[in-house]
Computed example of a mutant assay.
Amino acid sequence: MKAVKFLRHYGAYTLGDVAGFDDERADQLIVQKIAEEIEGQGARRAQDQAATSASQGQSKPAARKV
């Protein structure tokens, strides 16, 4: 899992949002310059929040494919 910070609007995410994705999806967003990978404390916090939200059934709606 990788944490990314969005560089522009994408689906339910807006500029500056941080979210965790599986490695393959995160890499796609990075290559398309939609998001950038974050590391360190912020990345760990985003991964923890994503795991907590998923376990509680809370999440943003799925982004539409471009």
Rank of each mutant, 00 (worst) to 15 (best):
M1E: 11
K2E: 13
K2M: 13
K2A: 12
V4D: 02
V4I: 15
K5W: 01
K5V: 11
K5H: 02
F6Y: 15
F6C: 06
L7I: 08
R8S: 11
R8E: 15
H9V: 10
H9Y: 07
Y10F: 15
Y10D: 13
Y10H: 15
G11C: 05
G11L: 02
G11V: 03
G11A: 07
A12R: 11
A12F: 08
Y13L: 14
Y13N: 15
Y13V: 06
T14W: 12
L15Q: 08
L15Y: 14
D17C: 11
D17G: 03
D17P: 05
D17M: 04
V18E: 14
A19I: 01
A19G: 03
A19S: 15
A19F: 02
G20S: 07
G20M: 02
D22P: 12
D22E: 11
D22F: 08
D23S: 13
D23G: 07
D23F: 03
D23C: 05
D23K: 10
R25Q: 13
R25W: 14
R25A: 14
A26N: 07
A26H: 05
Q28Y: 13
L29F: 05
L29A: 07
L29I: 03
L29T: 02
L29N: 04
I30R: 11
V31I: 15
Q32V: 02
Q32R: 15
Q32Y: 09
I34W: 01
I34L: 07
I34R: 02
I34Y: 01
I34P: 02
A35C: 06
A35I: 01
E36T: 14
E36L: 11
E36P: 02
E36G: 03
I38A: 03
I38T: 04
I38H: 01
I38Y: 01
I38C: 03
E39T: 13
E39S: 13
G40Y: 04
G42D: 15
G42L: 10
G42E: 15
A43F: 06
A43R: 02
A43D: 03
A43W: 03
R44M: 07
R44W: 00
R44Y: 04
R44S: 09
R44C: 00
R45E: 12
R45F: 07
R45L: 12
A46W: 05
Q47E: 10
D48G: 04
D48W: 01
Q49E: 13
Q49F: 08
Q49L: 14
A50R: 01
A50V: 00
A50E: 05
A50D: 03
A50K: 02
A50G: 10
A51H: 01
A51C: 00
A51D: 09
T52E: 12
T52C: 00
T52Y: 07
A54I: 04
S55E: 12
Q56L: 12
Q56D: 05
Q56G: 00
Q56N: 10
Q56I: 00
Q56E: 10
G57Q: 00
G57S: 04
G57W: 00
Q58N: 05
Q58F: 09
Q58P: 00
Q58W: 07
S59C: 09
S59R: 11
S59T: 08
S59Y: 05
S59M: 09
K60E: 08
K60G: 00
K60N: 10
K60A: 11
K60R: 14
K60F: 08
P61A: 07
A62Q: 12
A62N: 11
A62F: 12
A62P: 09
A63V: 12
R64W: 05
K65E: 09
V66R: 09
V66E: 07
